[in-house]
Structures are given as structure tokens and as C-alpha cells.
Design a protein around this nucleic acid. Structure first.
Lengths: 360, 360
DNA sequence: CAATACATGGCAACCCGTTGCCGCGGTGGC
DNA sequence: GCCACCGCGGCAACGGGTTGCCATGTATTG
């Protein structure tokens, strides 16, 4: 059984170093926190003594007076959602570069849990990145009053935000589907509380207007594969040839659900997702999707947060917008020109009542 | 632009509460940290005053004397690896239940980064969970000397460990393949530095012995999809009918690689993975795999860590072993009985002289 | 050469709780 | 009626750095 108590001398402090280096504790302190404030030779000597004694500055004690812990909190909605992996990595790396440590908080899609965790962490961290927060605007503003905050994937007045260029992504997806001959796109909505969900739908409305493509919305559904499978059932009842899903997981669920019911993707229906998670590339068919720069999101949000912590104003004017791109894979194809092929229930149903309306 | 400075009175401290409640600061302190030590009416009064003033105990100041921060570090090898998502969730939840906050450290598969990050976090956390550490045994022991540590997925004398029952999982996989008529299993190895990799191979050797199945190993390959695709090429050159991959990502890569070369899974080759990541269920064909109780791993390791922090000895005798189970999907099938089908290079190569030499 | 400026280091207060120890008043035992 | 004990609260010393201010001693300037 390991022994976690240093045998005699406990922990090495600046006082120990001070005695050994024959200077006062304050000089030792300055040698580390303000090297310019002390003679370089003295500083060097102190550093050597500290090294020899194995001194490590105690971040807690330092934090007590400076109220800087060199830690930031990263709050994500659901760690099992692969979207966040890259975001976390980006944030983590930016934090490490700035000599900060990251406290990860998984809100588990719960407003309550998120608030409680943020509350608890708040006094310990120097700033917070809220990625896809489930909290209300006012709750976020509350937090932003007490600590520097950067919000990811959500625009919010008076709080610095980083968002992706979803309108452009949706537009590109719509163009792509239009070029394939689709004149009607069904948006499969995610959580209504999700900010990107609203943006994506409105962007599609707009794109449809300009491109002369009809659009409609179904949902909301849970933003998971299971949600997508439920959406597939509804899609089966009210067929479409082109579908834009709120995110990749739903898109994958939709494809699975449709396949199970005998509907072919992309033969009968084209499906486009959002985010470009890793799985988008390994499913069959490969998922056409709007790729968000996940790593860059985490990184940009964190870097901005760090500058705020260092005292920068925190541009709250307009959100920082990150570019997206459309990744075309195999889940989209030209609109099937021969409805005469043997998929009667599906093909016929589109155009009104018929005997085979609800065949498998 | 938000203002992060409380206008007049800075932060509320026990001293403010003490004045207002007309008691000494120590009484306020005790009212929160040792309620039994103070008259219940007094405590109640103090609590009300504190509430009114918006007092929050400062965890840093508390930590300074108690040297307990109520934080633990969770170190993972690679956050983009989906295996860790569930582990993190399990750990996170256990930590939250125990009123602890989690500091996540992503080592990015780098020994150096891991050591640096652990070094930095060490003085701030009460304990550390090392999930699939890339550090050397001695480095881990070093850390374990200074803080309570629980190691996940690795057995290490003198340090508490939580591992999965890989031998049993491998055994089950081998039995499954044996029942399907396979008399030869190829193990596709992951990183040699990975502790589970060694265990899995040795377990397969053993299981092969008992079940009278021949085994061989190829690799090592990187534990990623790309690594799996490279392995597929080698498998193509030296064919096999049954493959056990180090992990699911490699298994998925193998299936993709083989498919691209015209080899059918499971028709020509059965593939078994390890871990049962989410993607295992959504690829085509669905991946047969040894499911590790990922959530339980994170949870068990963390709970054990917390008991150690609370002063329990930390059973270092034998590792805690978590059960696994075989999840059978569609990537395994009976060994193809008709080598006469049109896949000459593949079928012939196996048996050298006679075409049917190794039929069941 | 006097006067001012600067570099350097020490002193002591401070950050905000925690805790060992002591004292005071009240209660119960004998 | 005396003493031991208990419940409760206060005092003061931490814990480990940080930092404003002052005291030197040396360098610069006029």
C-alpha cells in the first residue's frame, strides 16, 4: 500500500528555499513570479537551490492572493456525443499552450446538472467555455457577470460567442441537392432548445427561397441515432427525396431506419447530415455532411477566453464566425428519375392515396 | 462588455458573515465545515446571514489548510478515441456523486505530454485516475507516491488497478469462432506498449491451446482505422479466415480494407473486435466484438480512488477485474465451406498444395 | 560633489478559511 | 457544596505565496 505522506519534511516551500539560498521568502517568491524584479544572479542561485530541494510552487497558495488558478472550465452537453471530442481536444490544446489546465464538465444534456456543475466550478476557474450550453440566456449572462465566459455554438448579446457559418453550410447543402435534381428538402429538426437547430432551419428556409426549392420541417427529434430512426418512420409516412438532418447522428439513424423499411439511400432518398463526425465516414453509405471545424471551434473559443482572462475586453459585438464546408460522400445522389422501378409503396405514396400506401 | 469586478464589496468572506451574525469567524467556519460543533440555532442563524449576503466558501482557501481540493484528475490517452467517452462519463458521474470535480487531461498518445500535464495537475488534485497511461511503470509509481492513484486497463504491482477480464473475453471470442468452424485465428496486434495488447495476445495463445485452434499474430499496427486498413493488406498477403483485432477501430479498418480488395466479411473472413464502441453497431456489417464495461470501468476506478482519498488503504494486492461479454453481430459467420467460389487468390493461398486442405 | 534615480532585497500585511487549545457557564453526580 | 464534565464559542496560529512600501547601496546626472 503506497504511502502518500512525505516522510519527514512535508512539502518544500519558499521558506525552505529562502533559508537555503540565504534570502528572504519574498525574494524567492519574486524569483519565480517576477524574475525581472530580482538580480539575475540571485535568481539563478535561487532557482538552483529550488531545483535541488525539489521545490514546486503551490498553485493553490498562489491563487489565494492572485485569484488566478490557471484553470478554465469547459462545459459540454454530452461527452458521448462524438462532436465534442474534437472540440475538447482543440480547447485542451489551446489551454495547455497558454499554461492553463482544463476542467471538463459534462452536463449530460441536463440544464440542472449543468448549472450545478458550473456553480461549483466557478469559484475555482479563471474562465469558462460553454459549448452548446443547455442553460437559459439569462443564466449564462449571470455566469458571465462573475467570470469571463465564451459561448460556443450560440449567439448571445453581450457575451462573446464563437459560432460556425451554418447558413453558408445549409446553403451549400441545398445547392448540392438542387444540382442533383431535388426540388424539395425536408429538414429533420433536433432539439428546439438548441440554438443551431433554429439557425439551420431558418437558413434552409432562406436558401429554399432563393434556390426555388421547397422546404418543410419535421420533428423535433432527439439528436441521436435513435431520434433519427424515429424520424425515419415519419419520413416513411410522409416521403421525401431529400433530407437535411440536424446532425450526423440523426442522419445515420435516418439512413438505418429507412434501410430497414426497404428504402434505399441514396437511391430513393438523399440524406445530408451536419458536423462531419468520424462515424460519417465509416457508415454505409458514407454520409454527405456539412463539416464544422470542430477542432478550430474549441481552439478559437479557448484562445479568446484566455485573452479575456489576461484582461482583454472580450469583443461582444458580433460573434466570431468559423467557416464550414460541404463534404460530399455517398448518401446523396441524383433524384431517382424512374419512379417506375419496383419500389411502389414509396414512389407512389408521394403522389397521393393508393392501395399500397403503407406496405413495409 | 461584461464587467467581472464586483462593484463595491469584492467577495463575501466568513469575516463579513461573522460581523453580521455577531459571532467570530471561526464559528462561521465551523457552522459550515463541522455543523455538529456549533449550536444548532447559532448555525441556523449563521446560515441565514450567509445566504442573505451571498456567501460561498472559497474552495481554494479551504484547500490551503486542508490540502483537499475536491478535484481529481482523469488522464486519458486520446480523447478522439471513442472508447474513452464512456469511461469519462462513468468517472465523471462517480466524481460528481462524491462531490468531486474532474480535471480531464488528454495525453494525446504522448508520454511526454502526459507526464507534463500530470506534473502540473498533481499539486492541485486529490487523486488521479490513469486510464491507459502511456507512462512507464516507474513514472506511474513516482506519481503514486505523491498522490492516490488508480490505474485503469493496466496491472501494476503496488498500485491499485482496475482491469477488464480480457482473458475471458478472448476466450469467448475464440470459442465463438471455433463453433463457427474456424480452426485458425489471426491476432492483429495494437501498440506493443499497450498493456492490454500483450494480455490479449497471450490470452489468445492460451485459448488456442485449450480449444485446439491455431493462432498467429501480425503487427503491431496503430490502433486506429488506418492501422486496420494497413493490417488488411497484410492479411490479404497472408490470408486468414478468422481475425481478432486489438480493438474495434482496427477491426473496422480491417473490414474496410478487405472489402476494398474484394474480400467479403463475414463470407470469407470473420472479424472480431474489442471494446464495443458505438460505431461497432453502425458499421456494415455490424461488428462482433468483446464488449468492455467502459462506463463501469470509469466509475469503479473513480469510486475506488475516492475511497482512497478518504483514507482507505487502496487494495493493491490484486487488480479489480471487471467482466466482459461477447457481442455477436454480423462480422462473424461460419467458415466458408465452398472454396470453389470465385475468389481464387484468396482461397487457394491459404492451403498451399491442395485447395481444400483446411476445410472443417 | 551634491542630488536624484534606480536596482535590489527585506518587512509585514494580506488572501480566506481551518483547527488546536482554552475559557466560560451550566449540569449532573456524589 | 464541590468537582468533573460537557457544550459552545473565541483566540490565535497556521497554510504558502504575493505585494505595497521602505531601506539600503550603487549608478547617473548636473
Amino acid at each position: 500500500m503506497p504511502d502518500h505522506t512525505r516522510p519527514p519534511g512535508k512539502r518544500v516551500t519558499i521558506y525552505d528555499v529562502a533559508v537555503e539560498a540565504d534570502v528572504s521568502p519574498s525574494t524567492v517568491s519574486r524569483a519565480f513570479s517576477r524574475p525581472s524584479r530580482v538580480n539575475s544572479e540571485t535568481a539563478e542561485r535561487i532557482r538552483r537551490v529550488a531545483e535541488r530541494l525539489g521545490y514546486r510552487t503551490n498553485p493553490l497558495a498562489r491563487a489565494l492572493t492572485t485569484s488566478r488558478t490557471q484553470m478554465i472550465a469547459l462545459v459540454i452537453a454530452d461527452i458521448t456525443n462524438p462532436v465534442y471530442a474534437e472540440i475538447v481536444r482543440g480547447a485542451q490544446e489551446a489551454a495547455t499552450d497558454g499554461e492553463y489546465t482544463t476542467v471538463l464538465i459534462d452536463a449530460q444534456e441536463s440544464d440542472r446538472l449543468e448549472r450545478a456543475a458550473v456553480e461549483r466550478a466557478m469559484s475555482t476557474v479563471d474562465g469558462i467555455v460553454l459549448a452548446s450550453s443547455r442553460m437559459s440566456d439569462s443564466a449564462i449572462r449571470m455566469v458571465a457577470k462573475q467570470r469571463p465566459v465564451v459561448v460556443l455554438n450560440r449567439a448571445l448579446a453581450d457575451v462573446p460567442c464563437v459560432v460556425t457559418d451554418d447558413p453558408r453550410g445549409v446553403r451549400r447543402a441545398a445547392e448540392h441537392l438542387g444540382e442533383l435534381g431535388h426540388d424539395h428538402i425536408t429538414y429533420v429538426a433536433g432539439p428546439q432548445a438548441s440554438w443551431p437547430n433554429g439557425i439551420r432551419w431558418r437558413s434552409l428556409l432562406e436558401a429554399g427561397m432563393e434556390l426555388e426549392i421547397k422546404v418543410r420541417q419535421i420533428g423535433p427529434f432527439s439528436p441521436t441515432m435513435a431520434g433519427g430512426e424515429r424520424a425515419a418512420q415519419e419520413l416513411y409516412a410522409r416521403p421525401a427525396t431529400a433530407v437535411l438532418a440536424f446532425n450526423d447522428q440523426m442522419a445515420i439513424g435516418i439512413i438505418r431506419g429507412l434501410s430497414r423499411m426497404g428504402v434505399n439511400v441514396p437511391g430513393d432518398v438523399s440524406v445530408v447530415g451536419f458536423d462531419n463526425i468520424l462515424a460519417a465516414d465509416i457508415v454505409t453509405p458514407g454520409l454527405t455532411t456539412v463539416a464544422a471545424p470542430l477542432y478550430a471551434e474549441g481552439s478559437a473559443a479557448t484562445r479568446h477566453l484566455l485573452t479575456m482572462i489576461e484582461g482583454a475586453p472580450g469583443h461582444t459585438g458580433r460573434p466570431m464566425v468559423l467557416p464550414v464546408r460541404l463534404v460530399v460522400r455517398d448518401s446523396t445522389a441524383a433524384r431517382n428519375p424512374s419512379p417506375g422501378r419496383a419500389r411502389p409503396s414509396w414512389a407512389r405514396q408521394r403522389s397521393g392515396p393508393g392501395p399500397a400506401a403503407h406496405l413495409p
